[in-house]
Design a protein around this nucleic acid. Structure first.
Lengths: 144, 144
DNA sequence: AGTTGATTTCGAGCACGCTCGAAATCGTAG
DNA sequence: CTACGATTTCGAGCGTGCTCGAAATCAACT
């Protein structure tokens, strides 16, 4: 466990895939899947033996992917974004457009979700009210 | 088209599946699929020849299903709810619990979505700012 | 050197929610 | 009566996003 003097610096830098999985909340299987799917901006560093070593930049990128996924961006679109980033400078407007389009979409879904939620809330409330009054029998009409 | 005196009432009541699909925004394929999947509370009415005829109650139920689906409730859970409703009076508390659990879940996802959206917004904003200043080159760090 | 556990690649498999196709039947218009 | 379009059932197929398994390799400890 000691590596006090293993110069020219510890070769054991970076996190193992298991550690990266733990920190990002993504399974190791999924981490590898993302990589295979092209959701990378920079090839993940490897040890001489071929094991992945995750650096902060990788974790930040994965976090971004997670957020995009959580907001419903399809894998292929994230890949597209990753490709743009990988392609280097010159396509920033396109990247921005992609993100803005997503933003708009998410905002729309959010609004819609809220409205659906409100109606479900209403249903729950009337349901609860009727139950409290003991006259819930026969109540199922979806329209209320 | 005239049915002025076709007693004991027009036998052509209710909407065809195509009409129901149009009104609910669900494809005819999906309507039939929902039925097969057990997402029904009352067997859909049929013409003597076997064609489905949708009545207002059916449309309201489908709308509810649509809202539940749109808020992420899995098919099997909707089926469970449908079963409870079909089972008749006596299980209202269970139905209410099911809906409330869903409500809670949706509210949580909503909050999470909002936070994700905020971070994406922030990224878009800084991105846009840098672009405007002409120093977007090299900018891709997911952490900002 | 040997053992043990993590990691690798790669392809297959799975869960979900539709979506489609084929072949038969219905029903309406001419 | 004939045509033709809509509808029926049923099973198969598909797209997405993982998830898993097998067999090989790596690495750390004893």
């Amino acid at each position: 466990m000691l590596e006090i003097n293993s110069r020219p610096a510890a070769p054991a830098e970076g996190l193992t895939i298991a550690e990266a999985a733990e920190r990002t909340g993504v399974s190791v299987h999924t981490l590898r899947y993302y990589e295979r799917a092209g959701l990378v901006v920079t090839p993940v560093d490897r040890t001489p033996g071929g094991r992945r070593r995750y650096h902060p930049r990788d974790l930040r990128w994965i976090d971004l992917c997670t957020r995009l996924r959580a907001t419903g961006m399809p894998i292929r679109t994230i890949r597209r974004y990753a490709e743009l980033v990988t392609a280097g400078p010159g396509n920033e407007p396109e990247r921005l457009a992609l993100l803005e389009a997503h933003r708009t979409e998410v905002a729309a879904r959010l609004t819609e979700l809220q409205s659906h939620l409100a109606r479900i809330d209403h249903k729950v409330d009337t349901y609860r009210g009727r139950l409290a009054e003991g006259r819930a029998e026969g109540f199922w009409a979806p329209g209320e």
